[in-house]
Design a binder for these strands. Structure first.
Length: 138
DNA sequence: GCCAACGTTGGC
DNA sequence: GCCAACGTTGGC
């Protein structure tokens, strides 16, 4: 299993909407690096959902329900989406501030490359965030 | 609202 | 292929 983090401004699409939708295509990615990460996602990979700009916190755990396929919101064949499904919310959202304070998370792409919207995590990073969020995950 | 970081575009 | 100009993202 691989570990990922996706981010979105909650005013555009947020964790609560994902919970209500049960499953959603992660569309609109228009950046090659992020696109390549989407392509590398495998079914059942774990994906943290981060709210950027407003909230600035990891809200919950999702999983890949469907691997990359062409983005239905464009005819441009360069772009792809995956489907995400909510797994569980974090007991406590993990703020950007607390991520920055954690010694094992200082090298996360979230911090080093703040504009990237889809990024891989190491398992250690994934586990550390769950620990801060007081949330278990098998 | 500002600005740094970064990506894209287009002229040469 | 280089680089200036411009646009976007996202933290502060």
């Amino acid at each position: 299993m691989n570990f990922w983090l996706v981010k979105q401004e909650p005013s555009k699409y947020n964790w609560q909407q994902l919970v209500e939708d049960k499953e959603t295509p992660w569309d609109g990615v228009r950046n090659y690096q992020a696109r390549n990460n989407l392509r590398a996602m495998k079914k059942a990979d774990a994906v943290l959902f981060y709210h950027s700009v407003v909230g600035k916190a990891v809200m919950g755990i999702a999983q890949v329900a469907r691997e990359a396929y062409p983005d239905p919101t464009t005819t441009d064949e360069r772009w792809v989406v995956v489907n995400l499904r909510p797994v569980k919310p974090l007991k406590k959202p993990v703020s950007l501030e607390s991520i920055k304070c954690h010694p094992d998370l200082r090298n996360m792409a979230l911090i080093k490359q703040s504009r990237l919207s889809v990024m891989p995590l190491t398992e250690a990073e994934f586990r550390a965030i769950l620990e801060i969020g007081a949330t278990s995950f098998k």
